[in-house]
């Protein structure tokens, strides 16, 4: 099974490489990419400087695998890549990279929305928001976040 959880931030170079690797797959006509970035929220007037991610790794990989399979079944996709950070990711750095490709735009457009929502809702990943004074709060996903 392909692993989706990666230690640390997802580097822009890694994303660029991923895009480059698809140039020989000439049946693809459309790519969609979603990037999640750590936002410097203000919580009680203190800035979030980083998020420390942990996960139930075995379960998270298994659920991401299930989400992949169901998304392939639902949409006419050529390929799909999902990466999520573990450990500390600083504000401004990328923590989620979802990449889908298809023959035509509609499948890729719809699949990316489905994937990102499913990942946020169903994958047991936990986020500790580290504030500028060293204290922390626990992040919780809602339908907006």
């Amino acid at each position: 099974m392909k692993k989706s959880l990666k230690e640390g931030q997802i580097l822009p170079e890694f994303i660029a490489d991923s895009i480059a690797k698809h140039q020989h797959k000439t049946n693809i006509g459309a790519h969609q990419i979603f990037l999640g970035q750590v936002r410097a929220d203000l919580i009680d007037e203190k800035e979030v400087v980083a998020i420390e991610y942990t996960a139930h790794e075995e379960m998270a990989e298994q659920i991401i695998h299930e989400i992949r399979e169901e998304t392939f079944e639902k949409f006419d996709l050529t390929c799909m890549h999902i990466y999520h950070s573990l450990g500390r990711v600083e504000k401004g750095q990328i923590c989620l990279f979802v990449f889908v490709s298809s023959g035509h735009r509609r499948a890729a457009n719809e699949a990316i929305v489905h994937l990102v929502e499913a990942i946020k809702e169903r994958v047991p990943i936990f986020g500790k928001e580290i504030l500028e004074d060293g204290s922390h709060v626990w992040k919780q996903n809602t339908s907006l976040s």
Binding site: H56, V116, I119, K120, E121, R122, V123, F126, Q140
Partner: peptide, 9 residues
């Protein structure tokens, strides 16, 4: 496993 609210992404 005792899992608090998810926060991926």
């Amino acid at each position: 496993a005792v899992l608090p609210p998810f926060a991926g992404g």
